[in-house]
Design a protein around this nucleic acid. Structure first.
Lengths: 214, 214
DNA sequence: TAGCTAATGGGTCGAAAGACCCATTCGGCT
DNA sequence: AGCCGAATGGGTCTTTCGACCCATTAGCTA
């Protein structure tokens, strides 16, 4: 199973670049390794960061995103993003080697799903029912450590993140004995590879175990 | 001192809206309370969320951002954002009641500074040296609890967030005795209003005490 | 049916943490 | 000269935690 999907984003608007980077990075299985403002540096960024997925804006000053990617050797699975709703660039994007084409009006969870799909080798431009395909990729691919955490254990973690950390308080909150709380915690520690509540909190937040899906 | 600045964002591009919301929200003193895709709902959103600052894209389908805000009663301090670098809309924005005008090529920290400045009553359109003004608003306004945390105490917190939680390990990492570690922790607990390491970690991450400014 | 896991619970024990008292040193500021 | 806060350190005491052993029940599934 893939642990994290490495992403490079290219867009000439700093705000979108910053915002999108942070938004994608906050999704546990997505990792933005490079963000570039300049279309001419796409090739260099791809070579440097070796991303699993490349995200490119069509509208770029100087070189257009499309012509930029068409010249890249060993192009990773690439999603082209446009400001406009019309897919006037759709064919051009396909010819340049892109495997997906999205509007900037796409909701973030759908973009995330598209990223996971193309990272998995799918080609959105050659798929009839794109919506159905993306449905298969909605949920983040959790790390093996995280997905062995049971529902009850996640409840314990959520309490920890909410500031309920004493065994006694956890027991009251969850309507179980203090002993059971300790058993759950011990199980959590083992699965996350940590030794105490403080480390468990850090891991839970990093892995997104404290929230109920993006 | 203001605790958190309440922000409403209006932009017709879902991705930018999602990304920017999350990016701004992750800054400790900024709080995105509303994000709307439709320019016609700006007035309603302002009435509902009563933001301290309004962020509007000029280019919106149907109603333009500018004409939308010009019709709003009790307009909060408003920043107008545009895709284009040229400030062709600058005058129109001013006349509509905006107090700032930014390109989407603005770096995020500068946008954050602009938000703080206008929330503080400044008018960027009537300021000669905007850069100098924004410099005064670079750093997040920390909550009173957080800014009494000393540098050494923050080092302890950073270690905790990095997974170093045992007193012995903290002592080694920081080259001090275990007793001093305990003293720092006790001081942190008091300032953050918590009782143990796990809660301190949660608070530190929430307040952004674990990172070195955005 | 047999086997597996999740969830619940028990007990013990040593190590660790947290709460309280305190002192010293070094800056900066008044 | 005097004060204060930050950083360093000490001691003691009680509570809590984590590690290790264990059992029971329910539910699923092979």
């Amino acid at each position: 199973m893939r642990t994290e999907i490495r992403i490079v984003i290219a867009d000439d608007h700093q705000i979108l670049l910053d915002g999108l980077s942070q938004a994608l990075d906050s999704i546990p299985d997505l990792n933005v390794v490079g963000a570039i403002l300049d279309g001419t540096q796409i090739a260099a960024a791809v070579a440097t960061y070796t991303p699993d997925v490349l995200l490119v804006d069509v509208e770029m000053p100087g070189t257009s995103g499309i012509s930029a990617i068409s010249q890249i050797a060993n192009l990773p699975p690439t999603l082209v993003v446009t400001m406009h709703t019309a897919d006037e660039y759709g064919n051009a994007a396909r010819e340049a080697g892109a495997v997906g084409f999205l509007s900037k009006s796409t909701p973030l969870p759908e973009l995330a799903a598209a990223i996971r799909a193309v990272a998995d080798g799918k080609n959105l431009l050659e798929t009839d029912d794109v919506a159905a395909l993306l449905d298969d990729y909605r949920a983040p691919t959790l790390s093996s450590a995280a997905d062995s955490i049971t529902e009850r254990e996640r409840e314990v973690l959520r309490c920890l993140v909410r500031g309920i950390s004493r065994t006694e308080d956890l027991a009251e909150e969850l309507f179980i004995s203090q002993k059971t709380v300790k058993n759950h915690l011990a199980s959590i520690y083992e699965k996350l590879g940590v030794n105490d509540r403080a480390q468990a909190v850090v891991e839970a937040m990093k892995l997104g175990l404290d929230r109920d899906w993006d």
